[in-house]
Design a protein around this nucleic acid. Structure first.
Length: 424
RNA sequence: GGGCAAGUAGUCAAGUGGCCAACGACAACAGACUGUAAAUCUGUUCUCUUCGGAGUUCGGUGGUUCGAAUCCAUCCUUGCCCA
């Protein structure tokens, strides 16, 4: 199966330029994707582009990961209804470094293989370019009419927020990236999210007009959730790839909690399982949806891919212990509790516990809930459990006899948010 | 520089002198039901609280008034039109 056919049945192709398939069949092709340095870690929204590069490399082509040191200074207006804040250079450098380290984990940059991945920073070439040169050599080839016809621009012109010249120019800047890579790295292909289509075609247009060259592109659909929510966001914010920002346990839980409909879609996109294996899983899911076989497989594959086997196993173990219906608190050993990586831990004074303290102060002081008022409301709503027992009374006293192994108290806020309080 | 319009909670958006911590929608969180789903129903969502209340809000500042999101002045920001 060709790369494009493979990506197609996985549901990873939205738009594609004619001739792309022929180009990929003809020779080893270098293809690039740009990553936005708006944070010092990639989050799961960037996972699809990463996987596109991985697929590209597996099919024997050369992936190029571009980090946007220059474009990050301008700000991509695509999908944004308002003008963006610009990043200062120091933050930018910090973010670039973090992203670089992560990308190195998923792509093979070993220089020995003929299709080793490349990493480039577009600031390296933009640093040298002067404004006048740019508007003469690049701006001359693209008409304003062409630029205004882009969706990302049109929407902003129709909206009430306006658009600065800076953001308007963005597509030219990104377009130039493609041109530069075409000229200097023999890059013939650009990929990205479908929101990038406008920027990508500007690049291809530039290559055509300036060099008479041919460039290709395809985009993948932007992920949505079946309930219309934003993909990759939870109540705790983004799901990051960096284990210091999102623990492997939380990462595992995110995928495990996918809606059935989403899980079936996502498992094709995010795992490398074969078509047969996936269809098999879907059949099993239909037979017994409560088993959530797809979610479990999805969570397993991804946690291993991002964090490794060991982290997956400990996330799975923590999950089993926290959620197993039969497991009473007594079955949790001290080691079990201690090893629960990823659930939030906080400390509480042992002396105060011995004296006894009301739940409300306890919840507020451990930071599990932000204030006493909220702690009270949450208890009245029935949303707090201590050592698995629901707290019904706001007067409830917390004291040292609740300590498990004379050391820990397990607090639940809602069904899925666990906190381990350690007496110290 | 001139004319017009707008700025209200996470977002959208009502409110045009007291009944306003501010209708509603969305979103989010929690509960029930379930499969750690979805859908549905219920509660909560400015901050703090000893649950009695208290404090700070409607772009900023100043004013009128017993009383201002609401009236006036001024400044800031944004959009549209003209130069």
């Amino acid at each position: 199966m060709s790369l494009l056919d493979e990506l197609k049945w996985r549901g990873m192709i939205q738009d594609i330029m004619p001739g792309t398939a022929e180009q990929l069949a003809k020779e080893m092709t270098a293809g690039y994707i740009g990553f936005d340095p708006t944070a010092d870690s990639l989050h799961i929204g960037s996972l699809v582009p990463i996987l596109l590069l991985v697929h590209l490399q597996r099919a024997g082509h050369r992936p190029i990961a571009l980090v946007g040191g220059a474009t990050g200074m301008v700000g991509d207006p695509s999908g944004k209804s308002e003008e963006r804040n610009l990043l200062d250079e120091q933050t930018l450098q910090h973010n670039l470094k973090g992203i670089r380290i992560q990308l190195e984990k998923y792509l093979d940059f070993g220089s020995s293989s003929p299709n080793a991945a490349l990493m480039v920073n577009n600031y390296d070439w933009f640093r040298e370019i002067h404004f006048l040169d740019f508007i003469r050599d690049v701006g001359k080839h693209i008409t304003v009419n062409y630029m205004m016809a882009k969706d990302s621009v049109k929407k902003r012109l129709e909206g009430s927020g306006g658009m600065s010249f800076t953001e308007f120019s963005y597509q030219l800047v990104q377009g130039y990236d493609f041109y530069w890579l075409y000229k200097n790295r023999q890059c013939r292909l650009q990929m990205g999210g479908s929101d990038q289509w406008g920027n990508i075609t500007t690049g291809a247009e530039l290559i055509r007009r300036k060099e008479g060259g041919e460039a290709f592109a395809f985009t993948c659909p932007l992920l949505t959730k079946s309930d219309g929510g934003k993909f990759g966001k939870t109540e705790k914010g983004n799901i990051w790839l960096d284990p210091r920002k999102t623990s492997p346990y939380q990462f595992y839980q995110f995928w495990l909690n996918a809606a059935d409909e989403d899980a079936a879609k996502w498992i094709r996109i995010f795992t490398f399982l074969s078509r047969g294996e996936i269809e098999d899983l879907i059949r099993q899911q239909e037979k017994n949806p409560a088993e959530r076989i797809i979610q479990k497989t999805l969570a397993r594959e991804l946690t291993i891919f991002i964090h490794g086997q060991a982290e997956y196993e400990s996330a799975l173990e923590t999950t089993a212990k926290l959620f197993s219906a039969s497991g009473s608190m007594e079955t949790l050993s001290e080691e079990d509790l201690h090893a629960m990586e990823g659930i939030v831990k906080s400390a509480f004074s042992r002396n105060r516990l011995q004296a006894g303290v009301d739940v409300i102060s306890f919840l507020a002081d451990t930071g599990i809930l932000p204030s006493k008022g909220e702690a009270r409301k949450m208890i009245q709503n029935g949303g707090v459990r201590i050592n698995r027992g629901k707290i019904e009374d706001v007067q409830f006293q917390v004291d040292s006899h609740l300590l498990l192994h004379d050391k820990y108290i397990l607090v639940q806020k809602g069904k899925k948010n666990f906190y381990l309080v350690e007496a110290g």
